[in-house]
Design a protein around this nucleic acid. Structure first.
Length: 413
RNA sequence: GUGGACGUAGCUCAAUGGUAGAGCCCCGGCUUGUGAUGCCGGUGGUUGGGGGUUCGAGUCCCCUCGUCCACCCCA
């Protein structure tokens, strides 16, 4: 608590070694699994024109209306820190001229920014692992997307997750359903909570998953989107369900999943846990068939999802530090330079080596212990003369005089 | 943006309005070529910051910053 004036910004945290180890575990799993589905990594800008998100996410959404870090730069351009990854991906897809290059399967890992009040599982700078597929027509891509998300979380060994799937309909069937729902809600407006009354006009589907018990009590027979799908959406949704069944991907229909962002249609899904308090959504996504065209490209069906790295991390627990292979203890000033050379030799063989800094033996062994070194190589004047080193196994306490080559053999083998 | 809880040593936490402490960690010694277990000693704090009440504030009041939890919303 010492230096008060120099703190990171509220809700923006440091990734220190213990945390980053867990992130890397997640990233490794993502690269492995997404690779098996032939997805390629993209690295996209963190700064984007503000207009991009206004046009894609929707001006009325909370993200755009109050959560974006946007500002005017020295040249007068209105730019912002990206609040999510899909809009930028679409922008890059179009800008890169890839609309005639066949299906694009992308994933990315990186920070996103939203100026919200921080709480459990919610930060102002957070990291997402996102996946986008452009040129994804049928239910088949939806199925593979869900299967890939499932495989990813399975690879991580996270249990207690539920895959929830819904269909949000499309421009054909959603408006009619919406009207019907609004009518239903208006009849019961008196019994609904204050926020739900605000939601009736702004985002009526959100009323369906209100947490207030008295609201839920009113909504038992509320109309649901899945009961009002047009023929195209119905066929699509049925195809998705059949495919998931065939692949034995466990899921349940949650007719009350709502997507906050304007661009979603048809398949929407969330993978949720009950272990993270109010922020139970660990991974979420869906289809956004209209967005590419909306942003000036050719009509292109697309689907994607994003997972919150920090939320996943909270479900995994600590990852043990790798620990160094060898700690070098140099005894006597005469052996210092020589010991540095021996350390370099060990490193050139690929071992991870810490030099304990010379000085008294006890201190150096304590350093070796704190570094969780598997072995200590002791180098003093005796060793300099014989050309050998003393290798001590820190677990057993046994030690022998060996050549460097034998040390490498003993540790690697 | 709204509401609630909290902020004391590097960490985890004590201290009826009356001299700021403990455990762990760290450093040193017992042992100048041997760690993790022992014993002895030591460093470390403007009690988040600022103001107020009081003879006296870590403790009470106000403001501010931050953390956590929830709402809103979302990964």
């Amino acid at each position: 608590m010492a230096a008060k004036s120099l703190q990171s910004i509220r809700g923006i945290h440091d990734g220190l070694p213990a945390e980053v180890r867990v992130w890397q575990r997640i990233e490794t799993a993502a690269r492995k699994v997404f690779g098996t589905y032939a997805f390629s990594e993209v690295r996209l800008p963190i700064l984007e024109p503000t207009e991009l998100f206004v046009r894609s996410i929707g001006e009325a959404t909370d993200i755009v209306s109050k959560e974006m870090y946007s500002f005017t730069d020295q040249g007068g351009d209105n730019i912002c820190l990206r609040p999510e990854g899909t809009a930028g991906s679409v922008r890059a897809y179009l800008q890169g001229g890839l609309t005639r290059s066949g299906t694009q399967r992308w994933f990315y890992i990186g920070p996103m920014f939203r100026r919200e009040r921080p709480q459990k599982g919610r930060l102002r700078q957070f990291q997402q692992i996102g996946v986008e597929m452009f040129g994804a027509a049928g239910p088949l891509e939806d199925i593979e997307m869900l299967a890939m998300a499932h495989a990813f979380l399975t690879e991580l060994g996270i249990t207690g997750l539920t895959i929830e799937v819904n269909s949000l309909g499309c421009a054909v069937c959603r408006p009619g359903y919406r009207d019907q729902l609004v009518g239903y809600l208006k009849q019961r407006a008196g019994q609904l909570c204050e926020t739900c009354n605000e939601r009736i006009e702004k985002n009526p589907m959100r009323v369906l998953d209100c947490k207030v018990a008295s609201c839920q009590a009113q909504l038992g027979d509320a109309p649901e989107m899945v009961g009002h799908l047009c023929e195209g959406c119905e066929t699509h949704f049925t195809g998705v369900k059949q495919g998931l069944d065939a692949l034995q991907v466990p899921y349940r229909i949650n007719a009350r999943i709502v997507r906050g962002l304007d661009y979603y249609n048809r398949t929407a899904f969330e993978i949720v846990t009950d272990q993270l308090g109010a922020q139970g959504t660990v991974l979420a996504g869906g289809r956004y068939d209209g967005l590419v065209e909306e942003l000036g490209g050719p009509a292109t069906q697309a689907i994607g999802f994003a997972a919150g790295l920090e939320r996943l991390s909270m479900l995994l627990g600590e990852t043990e530090a790798a620990g160094v292979d060898v700690a070098v203890v140099a005894l006597g000033d005469a052996a210092l330079t020589y010991s540095l050379k021996q350390a370099a030799l060990l490193r050139s063989e690929g071992l991870s080596v810490v030099h304990c800094g010379g000085g008294n033996a006890k201190r150096q062994f304590r350093v070796a212990d704190r570094e969780s070194a598997r072995c200590v190589v002791v180098i003093g004047e005796n060793e300099m003369h014989t050309g050998l080193v003393t290798l001590k196994d820190m677990a057993t306490g046994n030690q022998h005089e060996l050549s460097i080559a034998e040390v490498v053999q003993a540790i690697s083998g």
